[in-house]
Structures are given as C-alpha cells and as structure tokens.
Amino acid sequence: MRKLLTVCLGNYCRSPFAQVGLARRGGAAVTVRSAGLIGKWQDLPANPSMINAARRLGHDLTHHRGHQITLEDLDWADDVLAMNAAVLDMLRAIDGGHNTGKLRLYLP
C-alpha cells in the first residue's frame, strides 16, 4: 500500500481537498493523509467552501481536522506532495535532507 501525504500552508483548503481526491482515486492501493506547515487551523474543520466543493464532487471533508506537519509524518509517507513551490521549499528546510527523494510538487 502506497502512503501519500499532501501538504499546504495550513491544512485548511488545498491539502485536505487533495487528500480526499487522491484517496478516492487510489482506492485500497493508497493511504492518504494531509498536513499543514502552520498550526493556525490545528484541530479545526476544513474551510467551508472546500467542504462544499468536495461535496459537489462526491467527497466528504466533514470529518477533516487540521494537522500541523511533524517529522514523523514525513517519515511515514512514501511520497510527500507539496501544494506549491513555496511549501516544497519549506518542507525541504523542515526535513533537513532525510526524506529529500520523496518530497515533490503535487502538480509540477
């Protein structure tokens, strides 16, 4: 089973949305988690607009709660997918070179 981690700035909009989409697309072959670089939305639901957008596409974000990334999250994942180049740069700094080969942009 492939383990994917989607990461954005706050784990409030983009990474939770990507998490549910990838989980549905990957089915039983993947486990997907999401996280944010900052803890501003730690333990809070996803953005209401994202919950509604996900619902329109058949995804459920109502159970999502924000999570600030940890080194354990990076170690857990087979692939860490950053939502943009700035997030990728910050992930590289946080990681310190331990997981460099698995850090990449979600959409190059």
Rank of each mutant, 00 (worst) to 15 (best):
I69S: 14
E72R: 11
L57C: 12
L61K: 12
W76K: 04
W76D: 02
V87I: 15
D78M: 02
A82E: 09
D79H: 09
N84D: 13
H59F: 15
L71Y: 00
V87W: 02
A82P: 14
L61P: 10
H67S: 03
Q68E: 13
G58P: 07
L57S: 12
M83W: 14
R65T: 02
T62H: 13
D73Y: 15
H64I: 05
V80H: 04
V80D: 01
H63Q: 15
L74Q: 13
A86Y: 06
A85W: 08
V80M: 04
D73C: 10
H63A: 12
I69T: 04
G58C: 08
G58H: 10
A85D: 07
T70V: 04
D75M: 01
H59G: 05
T62Y: 14
L61R: 15
Q68H: 01
L74W: 15
D78E: 08
D75I: 00
L61H: 14
W76T: 00
L88F: 05
E72A: 15
G66K: 05
A86W: 14
V87R: 09
L81N: 04
E72M: 00
H59E: 09
W76E: 01
A86V: 12
L88S: 05
R65V: 01
L74K: 07
D60K: 11
T62I: 09
E72G: 04
D79P: 01
T62V: 10
V80L: 01
A86D: 15
Q68P: 04
R65A: 07
Q68G: 04
G58Y: 10
L71N: 09
L74R: 09
D79C: 00
Q68L: 01
V80Q: 02
V80F: 02
A86K: 07
A85M: 07
L74P: 03
D79M: 02
E72V: 00
L71Q: 11
G66A: 09
G66F: 10
H67K: 04
A82D: 11
A82Y: 12
L88N: 08
A85H: 13
M83R: 10
H64V: 04
V87T: 06
G58Q: 12
M83N: 11
L74H: 07
L71C: 00
W76N: 05
T62F: 14
D79F: 01
G58W: 09
G58I: 11
H59R: 08
H59W: 15
N84A: 07
G58N: 08
L88H: 15
R65L: 08
A77E: 06
H64P: 05
D75T: 14
L57D: 13
H67C: 00
G66C: 08
N84T: 05
L71E: 15
A77P: 03
T62M: 08
L57N: 12
I69H: 00
H59P: 10
L61T: 06
N84Y: 07
D60W: 06
M83I: 13
L88A: 05
V87S: 06
N84C: 06
A82K: 06
A77Q: 03
H67M: 03
E72Q: 14
D75L: 00
Q68R: 15
M83Q: 11
D78V: 02
T62R: 15
V87G: 04
L74G: 13
A82V: 14
G58A: 08
D78P: 02
D73Q: 06
T70R: 05
W76A: 02
L81H: 11
G66P: 09
A85K: 11
H59T: 06
